[in-house]
Structures are given as structure tokens and as C-alpha cells.
Design a protein around this nucleic acid. Structure first.
Lengths: 337, 337
DNA sequence: TTGAAAGCGCTAACAG
DNA sequence: CTGTTAGCGCTTTCAA
């Protein structure tokens, strides 16, 4: 393993002190042009590149120019769109992004956060896993800035960016009710996930508004994979009193449920509205009506808030609620039989 | 900004030397149990966490426990699946992953690589942008390991993981020809991107095998966005002598082309085969026949090779070619009129 | 304008 | 088993 040249090596090659090299490398004024060019030549010749690790060590209280992004699963389009937005905002401001997926597992979340903090990231954009984020407070107390995105952190007073899950879902369910549906199924994620709970509450809100008694057998919560969603949707639709419409609580569940629809050999009569837009939703037959949210806007907003904090913003924590939009495409406009 | 406690602070609180703290923190054997517990208590009390930046600085020649992943665009499902696989392999071995998107822009690639190397990443998994990767050689010469994935690096002798683009495409086109198609269109990415070139060559191979003269007007290369793909597909299909089948060179182009198909008011008679599988391809009408490749396998293989290098593997550079598979789903089995 | 000295937080290499 | 010393590569500070 070849040793990388240091400032000392450059200094020796250029016949100056390593301090002069430091000044040139950092673009300080007040170095004779003659020496500047000698140093620059030596840098090119040796292929010298400043060691940012060592740099940050000495420049304490300064930023390390790195932030951490902790999401559920970067492979999911929703989170990867969010990640890309965070990356773009960060890069534009000279920050690098460490990415970690948690699979909504608390242990892994703690491991990822600990590893990031050991590298002294300046801040974290976190999609909090269910459960307490108390351990994040320790890190925050030592100067790591934290912004929560998509869900608020439990027991955490920090900047937060979410969407209007509850009213968004309520409107979607109301839309179904407005078309005559009364038996509306609900497929949701694990109920300890904040967004899942909010959406379920929005579902109940809308039923309550219309004085419809909720039917427990029409509700499946804790759906974690597309396969489980397929299975759950099939169960609902083949029950004795099947719902005439189904609401699916996130993009993965929607996609899973769609598989059940096509496998079903009875004519498709069940209406479908899903939370989250997804690629090709408008190309399916029928096109899928969704509650659309903008993951890129979530990510960009969170990253901007985090960088503002890192750069000294000390205002009280804010919560930004982004709007969702009901995109009616067809699947949610199927009337009850 | 509160100061983080250091080993010295812990040492003072525990009444030992900071070396003893270091030994406890690193799980060294040979510290009296009594002192261990005193140190551990002090660590918990102060919320101490080792500064890995400082640690790596001293432990020279050792790893920094960080690798960089440089992809085209993490928001694309293909790259995000690859990223997730890299992350999983890295995390399992105690490595963190910095992620950067290049948008296939050379300048940005260089910026990202430089920033990663300044942080002294141990290695890079790179999806090389078109053009020379000469600048990577400089970094490699200083000990940064590099593995190329999806495309080989130009002028770079490094471990490489790719798929059999050319034969994969050749077989797909042969499949269309086998069903009687003779006028087959081709929609591809920028021709300076290796995979695009390989696939185009595979297309020509298959035509040559069948002694079909290529029709230049049936070929559109340099397609960079889904919208451009839609436009290009529409142009092909509305030309005077339209192709009876179209091959699309990546998932984004396939999705864009599908939009043109649905907008087309003539009955859909054009066959379609795309490179890359994508979510819901099997739910469209008709389901889309694709040349399937496994981005997670690409990422996992590349990450494993990189970590092996970091851990001392000095064997000559290898190139791994993963197999693609033609998934016949319907859209590629539409016969010519 | 330049350089020498000190030290960031940590670990390697000794000494006790 | 434990502590002391030195030094990683860099920047801060201060003197020349």
C-alpha cells in the first residue's frame, strides 16, 4: 500500500515549510507568487491531496462536511427519490452524504446512527424507526444536528418534515364514500410506524364523518411486504362480505394488492386508492388513483433545514407539513356494484 | 456547540490514564475488571463516543472503514437496488458507504471522487461515466481500491462486474426475429455509455445473423430521459415504414416508450422488448418482455470484490460477467402484422 | 510574508 | 497490567 504524500513531502519537494504548503492548499492570500507556483508544481508532481480527516481533527468546532441519511430502505423508490434530493442539496453546499438503511429495525437504526456519529457527521436526516429516539438526544447534546423526515421522532424536539397523512387519507376515503362506497377495506403498514397510524386514523375519520361503522374484518394492519399485501388483499376480497373498495397505505402495499386484483378470476369490481404515487401507476388498467406526496420535496426540505442548523440557525424547532394531492386516475372511481 | 468528551475526560472521571480508557474502548484484554467497570461507568456518564476520525489518523495504513459508491442516479430503481446491495455487504463487514450521483456527467464524477478520496475512503465502487477514468489511476496509485460496476472503466485495469449486454440483447432481438419481425427499432442511451454501445452492437449482431439490413431510421440513440423516449418511440411508430417491433435499451427508455404506445390511437401492434426488468412490468397490458439483469447481484459482487481488495487481495484484476435472462411476458411475443 | 512550535484525539511502542 | 511518550497530518498561534 503506497503511502500518500503529506504536506511535509510537498514542502520538501518545493523547498518551503509545510505551513506555506498549507496556505497554498487552502488558498490563503499572502504567499509570494513564486512560492505558490513552486508548491503547486510539487503538488501536481506528487499527486498530493489534502487529508480532510486530519484537517477536521485540528479545526475543531468546524464542520466535517458530512451528513448522514438514515432511511428505511434506499431500494424503495420513495426513499431513493428522497435520498437523491438530500444528496443534491448537500453536494451543492459542499457536503457529503453517508447513507444507511434500517429496514425499520430499531437495533440497526442505533448501529447506523452510532457509526455515523463516530465519524463525526455534522448532522443527520433521519426517518425515525418506531420507538423512542431517546438515544438520538445523546448525540444531539454533543452537537450533532438532527432533522426528522417523513415521521416525527418520538420524544424528540427537532425540525421535522412530514406530509398531511391524516387529512390526505381522510379526503381519499371521503372520495370513495362520495361515490357510494360504504364497505371500504384498509391495508396498512405496522401500526407502530407513525405514518401508518396517521393514515389509519384518517381512514377512521372519514368513516366517522359519514357515520359508517368501521368493519374490523375489512382492516389488515402490519403488512410489511408486497407478498403479504397480495395475500391480505385476496383475503379481503374473497371474504363473505367483501369491501367494495380498498385503501392501501403505501406504495409497496398498493403494488402488492394490485397483484391480487389481477389474479382474482372474478371480474374486477373493487375500487382501489393507494397512498404514494409510483412509476407506471398511470399505465395500469385501470390507472391507479393515489394520494400523491413528493419524496424529493421531503428530502430537499429536510436537507435544507439541516444545513441551516449546521450553519448556525438556532431558531426553535419547526415542523413543516407538506401537502398531498389526490390524483384521480380511474381505479378509485369504480362505483360499488 | 457543546464539546464532545474525549478519552482524557473519561480518564479523569475514572481516575485512570487515557491509555487505559483506550484499551477498554477497544476491548483489549488485560485490564483489571475493576478498572474496566470504572471506565465503562465514566463513558456512560459522559456519553463518550470514540472519535473515529482521530483514530484512523493514527492507525495509518489501516482502513478508514468507509467506501464510496459512485452511481449515475440513486433515484433510478436500477441504481438504488445496486446501492442497497453495496450498503448491505459493506455494513455487514463494518464499512460505511458514501453515496454520490453523477448524472453521467464527467465533471461531477471527478468532483465526487475527489471529495471521497479527500475523506480517505478505502475504496470506491464506481459506475464509470463515459470518457477516460485516467484520474482514477492517480487515486489508485495512492492506495484507493477501485471496482467498476455495470461498465468497465476506460483505461483502467481493475476488478469489474458487468452483465452480458451484447449476447443478452442479441438473444432478445433473435427472439423477435424468430417470430417473423424484420423491421425492428432500437431506442438507446448515449452512445458513449458502454452498456448502450454493447446493446446496440448486440442488436446489429442479431440482425446480421439473420441477414437483415439495418434500417438507420429505425434507430434512435442518445435518449436520456423518459420523455425523450416517448417522443422517439412515437416518431418511429408514425413513420412511413414503421418497425413492427421495438427494442428499448434500458428501464427508463422502456417506460418512456410505453407511454407512446398507450397514447397511440392506432391499435397496438408493435412488439416491445426492453433491457432491464422494472417494477410492475408484469402488470402492464400486455406484460412487458424484458432482458432481466440483477442489479443487487451486481452491487453485492462489486462490494465483495472491493472489500477483498481492501483486506489485502492482490490477485490480478478480474472481470465478472453476470448472466441476463430473457423474460417473455407478452409484449415481445406480438407477431408482425 | 514565512516558519517554528503546539496540539486536535487517538494509538503504537515502549517502559515500568 | 498500566502509564508515559511520541507522533499521525493538519491548522492555529505567535514570533521573526
Amino acid at each position: 500500500m503506497p503511502k500518500r504524500p503529506t504536506m511535509k513531502d510537498v514542502a520538501r519537494a518545493a523547498g518551503v515549510s509545510h505551513m506555506t504548503v498549507s496556505r497554498v492548499v487552502n488558498g490563503d492570500t499572502g504567499v509570494l507568487p513564486d512560492k505558490v507556483s513552486r508548491v503547486e508544481r510539487a503538488i501536481r508532481k506528487l499527486g498530493y491531496q489534502r487529508n480532510d480527516m486530519a484537517r477536521q481533527l485540528r479545526r475543531q468546532g468546524q464542520t466535517t462536511g458530512t451528513i448522514g441519511l438514515v432511511v428505511d430502505d434506499v431500494a424503495n423508490t420513495f426513499w431513493s427519490a428522497l435520498a437523491r434530493a438530500v444528496e443534491d442539496v448537500a453536494m451543492r453546499r459542499g457536503f457529503l452524504v453517508l447513507v444507511g438503511s434500517t429496514n425499520d429495525d430499531r437495533r440497526r437504526e442505533q448501529e447506523v446512527v452510532a457509526a455515523f456519529c463516530a465519524r463525526r457527521v455534522d448532522g443527520l436526516v433521519v426517518v425515525p424507526v418506531a420507538g423512542s429516539q431517546r438515544f438520538l438526544r445523546t448525540q444531539m447534546a454533543m452537537g450533532t444536528r438532527v432533522v426528522c423526515v417523513d415521521r416525527p421522532g418520538d420524544g424528540l424536539e427537532v425540525d421535522t418534515v412530514v406530509v398531511d397523512n391524516r387529512p390526505g387519507t381522510r379526503d381519499a376515503i371521503a372520495h370513495l364514500i362520495g361515490q357510494g362506497h360504504e364497505r371500504i377495506g384498509f391495508l396498512g403498514d405496522r401500526d407502530d410506524i407513525w405514518t401508518a397510524e396517521e393514515r389509519y386514523t384518517g381512514y377512521l375519520d372519514a368513516l366517522g364523518d359519514a357515520r359508517i361503522e368501521p368493519t374490523p374484518s375489512h382492516v389488515r394492519r402490519g403488512v410489511r411486504t408486497a407478498a403479504q399485501a397480495t395475500e391480505a388483499a385476496r383475503e379481503l376480497m374473497t371474504a363473505r362480505h367483501p369491501p367494495t373498495a380498498i385503501f392501501t397505505g403505501n406504495n409497496m402495499i398498493t403494488i402488492g394488492a394490485i397483484a391480487a386484483f389481477s389474479q382474482d378470476d372474478r371480474p374486477r369490481a373493487t375500487a382501489l386508492v393507494g397512498f404514494d404515487d409510483f412509476p407506471l401507476a398511470d399505465r395500469l388498467a385501470p390507472p391507479v388513483t393515489v394520494v400523491q406526496q413528493d419524496p424529493a420535496a421531503l428530502g430537499a426540505t429536510a436537507a435544507q433545514m439541516l444545513l441551516a442548523r449546521i450553519e448556525g440557525d438556532t431558531a426553535p424547532p419547526r415542523t413543516v407539513v407538506l401537502k398531498t394531492r389526490l390524483l384521480t386516475r380511474g381505479s378509485g372511481e369504480i362505483p360499488p356494484p
